[in-house]
């Protein structure tokens, strides 16, 4: 189970959000939508401790910590239970596709290189890049890089994978291959929180859609309900705008 209780984040005097509560069951898939600048990325980054929350409690699996008193060990433990997929892929430029995937298994989980490579090659197979094991990021397309980014997150065997707009930096031609990999993970009931503007994906894959605006969770619910029958006026306005550009079938 993943739980956020009263998570608060400020940058200086600017408060991004206060008192956010959010709970996911194992295997649940959440898509977070909302206008830009609302705090979606910051929220994901707090769960992974890439940003330090100012208050609240984070629970991931059997680890639960008060963010104001988290020790370095607890932070490392939290990061080992969560994995992150970045908008700009953020692959290690000095490592091949295979080594990008294996790095965490070797350095963080302490697997031998041989063991890691066996698992790494399985993952390459699953992300459809078995033939690119030795390729460096610079020689891969955006779609391939993002699939390696997802592969790296899969390798972490995390309780939850956090996706921050994983397709919005991609050329349109590469979007589908990344979304279909994410759908495949969803079918395997990989717990995930996805920040995305891909409404079609949200509709097909999400168990629950969360709408955020101005640092608050305005409403949430199953995609059918939220998309067809949004209760809050802000949700309605946002959906009208987004769906006008990208109708969902």
């Amino acid at each position: 189970m993943i739980a956020l209780h009263g998570i608060t984040k400020r940058f200086g005097t600017h408060s991004v959000f206060e008192d956010i509560d959010l709970t996911l069951e194992q295997g649940e898939i959440i898509v977070v939508i909302g206008p830009s600048g609302t705090g979606k990325s910051t929220l994901l980054r707090c769960i992974n401790y890439l940003e330090t929350p100012d208050a609240g409690r984070l629970t991931v699996g059997d680890l639960s910590l008060d963010v104001t008193r988290a020790s370095r060990r607890e932070i490392l433990a939290l990061r080992r239970r969560t994995a992150f997929v970045f908008q700009n892929y953020a692959l290690f430029a000095n490592k091949s596709a295979l080594d990008n995937i294996c790095e965490g298994m070797i350095v963080v989980d302490g697997l031998s290189k041989a063991e890691a490579h066996v698992r790494g090659r399985e993952i390459l197979e699953r992300i459809g890049l078995a033939d690119k094991a030795n390729a460096y990021p610079a020689s891969l397309s955006g779609g391939q890089q993002q699939r390696v980014g997802i592969g790296r997150a899969m390798a972490a065997k995390a309780d939850v994978i956090l996706f921050d707009e994983p397709t919005s930096a991609l050329d349109p031609e590469w979007v589908d291959e990344v979304l279909s990999l994410m759908k495949q993970l969803a079918l395997e009931r990989q717990t995930m929180i996805v920040v995305s503007h891909e409404m079609q994906f949200a509709r097909e894959v999400a168990d629950r859609v969360v709408f955020m605006d101005e640092g608050r969770i305005i409403e949430q619910g199953p995609p059918d309900e939220l998309f067809t029958n949004p209760r809050d006026e802000r949700t309605q306005r946002f959906l009208r705008k987004v769906l006008a550009n990208n109708p969902v079938v």
């Binding site: 890439l50 994995a83 963080v108």
Partner: peptide, 16 residues
């Protein structure tokens, strides 16, 4: 000069 996002990626998987 090394892209800052690689630092975040490494930290995100629990590297010290």
């Amino acid at each position: 000069g090394v892209d800052r996002s690689q630092t975040e990626a490494a930290l995100s998987i629990g590297m010290t």
